[in-house]
Amino acid sequence: MSRVGLIGLMVLFTASLVAQIAKPVRFTEEIFDFGNIIEEDGPVTHAFSLTNSSDKPVMILSVKPSCGCTTPEWSKEPILPGKTGMVKAQYDPKGRPGYFHKSLTVTTDYDGQPITLYIKGQVVSRNVSSTSSEYQAVSGMLRFRSLSVNLGKVFRKDEFTQRNVDFVNAGDKTITYLDKFDAPAHIRVEVVPKTIQPGQRGEIRMGYNGLKKGLYGFHQDKITLYTDDETQPAKSFTVYATLEDYFVPLSAKELANAPQLYITELNVDVGNIRFKQSAVKEIVFTNVGKSVLEIRNIQGNCSCLEAVVDKENLKPGESGTIKITFTPEDRKGTQTKAVTVYSNDPQNPVQRIMVAGYAE
């Protein structure tokens, strides 16, 4: 390739990358917390506002909730430049006590790249005592807000991300933590106080070391604490975390010389897939930065999805291929999955490729 052609290609990639990072079509918020909602009061609704800062009308093509408990509505007319549209999320708490965290995947005709919105909150009932309402997860004589702990994003650093879990002794006897727990090496646990009187509240102080976990992406672990609670001595919890690399703040000069990952397609439609067959798609990715790009991990969010790269280290200007194999197995109908790519691009270290198809 000639020098002029190479420069033209790099300019094209850089312009595409800027468009990829910038968000001319964006929501003013992507997460909304309802707080405590009363189950008997019925569904609750929140409206997310979408601003079109581009130079062309934009339409919302679809909004797909992660659960049947969430009903979406959205602006059906084109959103003109400089104007706003909306996506409403209605959550039905009936029969769903405790914590919830749901998502809605929004697709527009601007670039087809999905935007994920989240709603969360705590469903309580007015028909029980205040303690029971606040702490609805029961483990023997102890009550917790939930028996699962979501740490959210945890960086792969040699330090412990801290999360405290409070609880109450709802029984009529003193309960003592026996200073014994089962947990993987990257999780540490402390209970304060170790002896909890009837009606007293306590706290589990949990630490999670992302570097010791040694993985990328979404993972779960089980931990068990042991007490002298006669009704249920062992208290088990599920701990969730999403692991990503940590990057120290860089100067403008350092950022200008950093690697940059550009993926040519972030939305892939593999079409119809016959029973017990697979669909294969290859996507080109390029290092449009000025230092070596490392692909540190790539993973699908389903056992039905395999993703591999032909190169893990790319020099500036060099390209590689991501090969995605989608095997629906026993799944039927429309399928939407994701492949996540982790790299040493400090500005965009985590990128997702959405994979859609129809399993016959």
Rank of each mutant, 00 (worst) to 15 (best):
M1G: 15
S2L: 12
S2K: 14
R3P: 01
G8V: 00
T14Y: 07
V18F: 05
Q20G: 06
I21S: 12
K23R: 15
K23W: 01
T28W: 10
F34W: 05
F34R: 08
N36D: 14
I37N: 09
I38E: 14
D41L: 11
P43S: 02
P43G: 11
T45R: 14
A47C: 02
F48C: 03
S54Y: 06
L61F: 04
C67M: 09
C67I: 03
T70M: 04
T71P: 02
E73M: 08
E73S: 13
W74A: 12
P78S: 06
K83M: 14
K83E: 15
G85Y: 11
D92C: 02
P93H: 10
R96F: 10
R96C: 06
P97T: 14
Y99D: 13
S103F: 12
D109L: 04
I115H: 06
I119E: 00
G121I: 07
S125H: 10
V128N: 03
Y135I: 11
V138T: 12
G140N: 10
F144E: 05
S146R: 08
V149S: 07
V149K: 00
F155T: 12
F155I: 07
R156Q: 13
E159F: 08
T161W: 04
F167A: 07
A170Q: 13
D172I: 12
D172R: 15
F181L: 10
D182A: 15
V191W: 02
I196E: 11
Q197F: 09
Q200M: 14
Q200Y: 05
G202I: 09
E203R: 15
E203G: 05
Y208F: 14
Y208I: 02
Y208D: 09
N209S: 00
N209Y: 07
L211R: 15
Y216S: 01
Y216A: 00
Y216E: 05
G217D: 06
D228W: 00
E230G: 02
T231Q: 15
Q232A: 15
P233N: 03
P233E: 11
K235F: 08
S236L: 04
F237T: 01
T238E: 12
V239Q: 00
T242W: 00
T242A: 09
E244Q: 15
L250K: 15
L250H: 08
E254W: 00
L255C: 04
P259C: 14
I263S: 03
T264C: 04
N267V: 11
G271Y: 01
G271Q: 01
R274W: 08
K276W: 13
S278G: 04
E282R: 13
I283R: 11
V284A: 12
V284L: 07
F285W: 07
F285H: 12
T286Q: 03
T286R: 06
I295G: 00
Q299Y: 04
C302M: 08
S303P: 04
S303K: 14
C304T: 01
C304W: 03
A307F: 10
V308Q: 02
D310P: 10
D310W: 11
D310H: 10
P316L: 09
G317H: 09
S319Y: 00
T321M: 14
F326K: 10
T327H: 12
E329S: 12
G333N: 06
V339D: 07
N344I: 01
P349S: 07
P349E: 07
Q351L: 10
Y358R: 14
A359H: 06
